[in-house]
Design a protein around this nucleic acid. Structure first.
Length: 275
DNA sequence: ATGGTAGATATTCTA
């Protein structure tokens, strides 16, 4: 007898401090009713992670990898999950930028990766800027890892703040951002190589909203009126392996979240699948 | 060309 497909609504959100924005997380849970939420920049150690408050929003299954003050990723789920141990220590830095879990969908498991790629600093020159060097090395290492078989063996999802806006219509001005970290050709080229692993990951937001429509997920705090100037970039992504193409049902970027009280500079990105 | 804001932490770093 055929298995009844399960709705999987997945959100990725750079929350920029989970402790500061717990109320916004609860709002997100009510507004979108995601089954799984991938968070980046939780900025909290595992010992200090607000587990009780997050469980109270309805997410009983939680995987966390955090450190003090910076970085930090978490996966919150209504679906049971099993954490994947032994993922690489990217660039040997011991920082908290990647979590992988298997979602317990009976008869149809899905592996989920949550990434927070280094932002890369201000100067797009790896010789002059170690943060940019780190970013390029990080993406290259991840690409090698997936290319060497980490992506083989079934359905997988990559979600997270990849800190790269790959397409010309993923930024407010392609021409003006070619020299700006997040949209330089070396970065978009490397991201393309990563995306080409696993037989070609599907960019789910662009599956639903193809170019030349503009699509952003981040607006700087430094713009006085973010909506008026609309100088956005699409830094947050959800990719799926090609064998999941038929599961994609809807996608949306929750732009209104940028106007929430005490907003993050990133907004939630959401995809719905029937898996 | 510059500086603008935000968060965690400690008076500076990261984004």
């Amino acid at each position: 007898m055929a298995r009844r497909p399960k709705r999987l609504r997945l959100v990725t959100w750079n929350i920029n401090s989970v402790r500061l924005r717990l109320a916004r997380l609860a709002d997100l849970a009510v507004a979108l009713e995601p089954d799984v939420i991938c968070l980046q920049e939780t900025k909290v150690t595992d010992a200090e992670f607000p587990l009780r408050e997050v469980r109270a929003t309805g997410y009983r299954h939680i995987a966390i990898r955090g450190e003090r003050g910076y970085n930090g990723v978490a996966i919150l789920s209504r679906i049971a999950l099993a954490r994947i141990d032994g993922t690489p220590d990217w660039c040997g830095k011991g920082d908290c930028r990647h979590l992988a879990v298997d979602l317990d969908i009976p008869g149809a498991p899905v592996r989920l990766h949550n990434f927070y790629v280094p932002a890369g600093g201000d100067i797009p020159d790896p010789a002059a800027n170690p943060k940019f060097r780190h970013k390029l090395d990080f993406v290259a290492e991840v690409t090698t890892w997936f290319g060497n078989g980490a992506a083989s063996g079934g359905r997988q999802i990559i979600a997270g703040d990849l800190n790269i806006a790959p397409l010309p219509d993923d930024v407010w001005s392609h021409r003006q951002l070619l020299d700006v970290v997040s949209h330089t050709p070396v970065e978009t080229g490397l991201l393309g190589q990563w995306q080409a692993t696993a037989g070609g990951w599907i960019d789910t937001m662009r599956h639903f909203v193809p170019p030349p429509q503009k699509l952003y997920s981040w607006w700087s705090y430094r713009n006085r009126d973010w909506r008026l100037s609309d100088r956005g970039r699409r830094l947050d992504h959800i990719w799926v392996t090609p064998d999941m193409a038929g599961t994609l049902k809807a996608g949306q970027i929750m732009k209104d979240a940028r106007d929430w009280p005490l907003a993050s500079d990133h907004v939630p990105v959401c995809v719905e699948m029937l898996v």
